[in-house]
Design a protein around this nucleic acid. Structure first.
Length: 670
DNA sequence: GAGCACTGC
């Protein structure tokens, strides 16, 4: 008998030893399937070890002979890096050697790399250079069930590539509900091998299921529907707090406003709880939250506190919080929708799908048995769609159509999509690309313009603006504006109750001509006066991480242009507001019009904007310098509809005549 | 006079 000292403090292992993971006992079966069938669909929950173990099994089984490599795609950058780090550690190598990763701005691979993790978008880009992805012996598409546009397109490409490269092995990792969809996709059209009983040909794609989770989760429904899920969520939190044993709570809501409201309400009500009992620590979590405030969510709650996290969908897949025992699911999510007729994107509160509800519930039982409180009835649950409408069916497809064309897929309408997007969406995208000059009368990619637009890592209208910039003599400035507008986030840090401060910080950089010139001023100040330091950002309430990112994006775009043989002259004096520069400002606005003519609007006497056809009322977004300012004609970067208002963001003044000058075809009838 | 789900090249 071993002489255990039960009083000793045990330190839990940082990682579960690989041989204890459920996947270990499926190793032989898995390798057999990959050997014998071109496509293997692996069904397994988070924590089954599929992302970390499968690549190592394959490497040991000889799939990297002849210098070929194993590629594993992830939908997110963080996943690609963290999984690579972990596999490198298990493999016993430095990351970047036998095991590496590649994401935008960071290529941590070398000649000796055999197992490579990368984002799905980046693998599509690799196909531009190497159409058959010939370096890879196996490609594993991880988290395919999330159905991101990139992974959907990647699957379509892989299906095509497979026909020319029978040696290529494809592995798709998926959640249970959708495994059959993937198999059907790759098995179509049923080839001659179809059996006499009409049974589908299983030779192409096989499914293997890995053991699921270890801890059970109780699902509880409401007996009668609620009219106010926010209020119900708050009261449920208190019910759990008083009736259920220890364990943190995760509440799924739809957005920032709701979350802030809930956090405040819980803080107020818990203050009224009698002293002595355990207290509640309510915390918000959404992607827009500054990084330092997000950190609290991962820290252990102080003694005698129960952590309650009110979160958006970030916690459904992207972020994992330890110690969650209870999940409260509002049953709703904000989803992007795209109206092909107006070209307007909207964010709409939508009921979740069954798959999404399962994913949310699963967040409860990661470390011990858990409970999930669904704020809807079981009947409502039954009426929910099985899965969320894939992103590809509700997005602006122009950037992806451009990529497909550059990959040599001319007939995009007949591309083999996992689920085809509505024809209207495709037509709208083709029309836009045609008006920008990326496609010719036969819908063929133009050269060099269209091809270059496809290669630039910015959306088509900005790509056109960039490629037009040399003729306006403002390439250096447009490069900066392109980098700043493609950040996808607010560069201004908004502290609670300090709106005034943010506003005055912003006005220091304000340009009369609009937001694009203001962004240019901010960047110029950051790299010159601010010496790219965080102190400058701190003093001016700017998001340092985003500013650093802008520097990277700008450098990357500049490299692309130089590869096209376009010289970027940075020797000119930095932008200033002095007299000779005003001509430069006009050139910049003219150049922006050459790319953004489709996003033009005119201010009405009541201060709102109307698009050119006059059909849509648009409001300047409160984050814009043009908010509550007088203007006539403007162009804008993007339009977003929320609730019942349609906002335009990143706005600059232009002259009406410029629209006719740079887009005569587009505006000839008006 | 008032506001933004989440990714990615």
């Amino acid at each position: 008998m071993a002489d255990f000292d039960l009083g000793a403090a045990f330190i839990p292992a940082l990682h579960k030893p690989a041989e204890l993971l459920p996947i270990a006992k499926h190793r032989e079966a898995l390798l057999y399937l990959v050997e014998t069938s071109p496509v293997t669909i692996v069904v397994g929950q988070t924590g089954s070890g599929k992302s970390t173990q499968i690549p190592q099994f394959l490497e040991r089984a000889g799939w990297c002979a002849d210098g070929k490599i194993i590629g594993i795609t992830q939908p997110r950058r963080v996943a690609a890096t963290t999984v690579a780090l972990r596999v490198a550690e298990e493999f016993g190598c430095e990351v970047g050697k036998e095991v590496g990763y590649s994401i935008r701005f960071e290529d941590v691979t070398s000649g000796s790399t055999r197992i490579k993790f990368l984002t799905d978008g980046l693998l599509i880009r690799e196909a531009l250079v190497d159409p058959l992805l010939s370096r890879y012996s196996v490609i594993m598409v991880d988290e395919a069930h999330e159905r991101s546009i990139s992974s959907d397109i990647l699957l379509g490409l892989l299906k095509k590539i497979r026909k020319k490269r029978p040696d290529l092995r494809i592995i798709i990792s998926s959640a249970t509900l959708q495994a059959e969809d993937f198999r059907n996709f790759f098995s179509e059209p049923k080839e001659q091998k179809e059996g006499p009983d009409g049974k589908q040909n299983d030779d192409i794609a096989s499914i293997i299921s890995l053991e699921g989770r270890t801890y059970p989760i109780d699902i509880l429904y409401l007996e009668t529907p609620t009219e106010n899920y926010l209020e119900k969520a708050i009261s449920t939190v208190f019910e759990i707090h008083t009736n259920e044993p220890k364990g943190d709570i995760l509440v799924f809501l739809t957005g920032r406003e709701e979350i802030d409201q809930a956090v405040q309400a819980v803080a107020e009500r818990s203050a009224q709880l009698r002293a002595g009992s355990q207290s509640i620590l309510p915390l918000p979590l959404y992607a827009g939250l500054p990084a330092d405030q997000q950190m609290y969510v991962f820290e252990e709650a102080p003694e005698n506190f129960r952590k309650v996290i009110f979160s958006t969908n970030v916690s459904e897949a992207s972020v994992t919080i330890d110690g969650i025992v209870y999940v409260v699911d509002s049953g709703f999510v904000k989803l992007r929708a795209y109206n092909p007729r107006t070209g307007i994107e909207s964010l709409t509160v939508t009921p979740v799908s069954k798959a999404s509800a399962a994913q949310r519930a699963g967040r409860a039982g990661r470390t011990k048995p858990g409970k999930c409180f669904r704020l809807y009835t079981e009947e409502t649950y039954q009426s929910l769609p099985d899965s969320t409408v894939p992103e590809i069916q509700r997005s602006n497809l122009a950037p992806f159509i451009l990529q497909l064309k550059a990959l040599g897929i001319d007939n995009v309408l007949r591309f083999d999509f996992l689920t085809p997007p509505p024809a209207e969406l495709m037509i709208r995208a083709l029309e836009l690309l045609y008006s920008l000059g990326a496609l010719d009368d036969y819908a063929k990619l133009t050269r060099p313009l269209g091809l270059r637009m496809a290669e630039l890592a910015v959306e088509p209208m900005m790509a056109k603006t960039l490629l037009s910039a040399p003729s306006f003599g403002c390439l250096s400035e447009i490069l900066t504006i392109a980098a700043m507008t493609s950040l996808g986030g607010n560069i201004w840090i908004q502290h609670e109750g300090e709106k005034k401060k943010t506003e005055s910080a912003r006005w220091k950089f304000a340009a009369e001509e609009g937001d694009h010139l203001t962004l240019l001023n901010v960047y110029q100040a950051f790299v010159t006066k601010g010496r790219k330091e965080s102190r400058f950002c701190h003093e001016n309430l700017l998001n340092f991480k985003l500013m650093e990112r802008a520097v990277s994006i700008r450098a990357q775009l500049k490299r692309y242009l130089e590869r096209f043989g376009i010289n970027v002259d940075e020797s000119l004096a930095p932008h200033s507001t002095s007299a000779p520069a005003s001509n430069k400002a006009e050139q910049i606005r003219r150049c922006l019009t050459a790319g953004y003519f489709a996003h033009a609007a005119r201010m009405q006497p009541d201060g709102t904007f109307r698009n050119v056809s006059g059909t849509t009322v648009l409001h300047a977004h409160p984050s814009s310098i043009m908010f509550n300012r007088k203007a006539d004609w403007v162009i804008f970067h993007e339009v977003v509809e929320t609730g019942n208002k349609t906002f335009i963001r990143d706005i600059s003044r232009i002259e009406k005549a410029w629209l006719l000058e740079y887009a005569p075809e587009f505006y000839k009838s008006s």
